[in-house]
């Protein structure tokens, strides 16, 4: 069986692949948004919580950064029913990916918050803001600027990490490619099409990310770079990234 461009292009716009790509997109977005929520909460617990909350946050981050996403997904979908927790494929995929993402984002968000000058908190208190107001109006919007670039990279990673959900039969790009490969055994064509789809998604995301970053940089001007110290913190927080 030789390489066939005909099959390649046919698969590229195959219904199964397009539906798979769409699933990859929404699964990534939903998991990312939930992960962001978890990450903010975990970062808050770790930075401002009492001893109990801090330990909970530390444990969560340690657990999910310390184990492979693949194992997390398998445990959630196929392991938990043993103790009576039955989740659908979709629920398992979202929960697994979000929990894993949240653990990485917690450290990124924490580094972002720490990069905001202490004087900002003083100034916000001096104009009578409570903790919550300071956080929402002053600290987090400024932390966002440092958080956005690594957050974008995390989302890039997420688009690809969703492929692991194929092992619990989540019908995203990878899983659908596997199914398509079973039909005519055009394995190379099928998986190169899947790879192409990931490249398309990641490239489009890259363009969107540039725009978002530019938007958040605007108040600070072109000359104002994120301090090298904050950058180091964030690189440390990102560690080995996904998987």
């Amino acid at each position: 069986m030789n390489w066939s461009w005909a099959y390649f292009f046919e698969y590229l716009v195959n219904d199964l692949m397009i539906r798979g790509a769409w699933t990859t997109i929404w699964l990534s977005v939903v998991s990312m948004v939930l992960g962001l929520g978890l990450g903010v909460v975990a970062a808050m617990f770790k930075m401002y919580g009492n001893a109990v909350l801090r330990v909970i946050a530390e444990f969560y981050i340690w657990l999910f950064r310390g184990t492979p996403v693949l194992i997390q997904l398998v445990i959630i979908y196929t392991g938990l029913p043993q103790i009576g927790i039955r989740l659908t494929v979709i629920e398992s995929a979202i929960i697994g990916l979000a929990l894993n993402e949240g653990a990485y984002l917690a450290e990124i968000i924490r580094a972002g918050i720490m990069s905001v000058d202490r004087g900002q908190n003083d100034a916000a208190r001096a104009v009578g803001m409570s903790w919550r107001e300071r956080m929402w109006l002053i600290i987090l919007p400024q932390a966002t600027r440092t958080i956005i670039p690594p957050l974008g990279n995390q989302f890039n990673g997420m688009l690809k990490t969703t492929s692991l959900a194929s092992v619990i039969s989540m019908e995203e790009l990878m899983r659908n490619a596997q199914m398509l490969a079973q039909i005519e055994f055009r394995v190379l064509e099928v998986y190169l099409v899947a790879a192409t789809w990931y490249l398309i998604l990641v490239t489009i995301w890259g363009l969107i990310q540039q725009r978002i970053e530019a938007h958040y940089e605007k108040p600070f001007g072109p000359a104002a770079a994120v301090s090298p110290d904050a950058k180091k913190q964030i690189e440390k927080a990102m560690g080995a990234g996904h998987v």
Partner: peptide
Amino acid sequence: HLVARQMRQLGMVFQNFNLFPH
């Protein structure tokens, strides 16, 4: 939040301005 309320009676101006850059 009650300390925050009390602080509204006082205005503070800092050496480094501490304007909100965003």
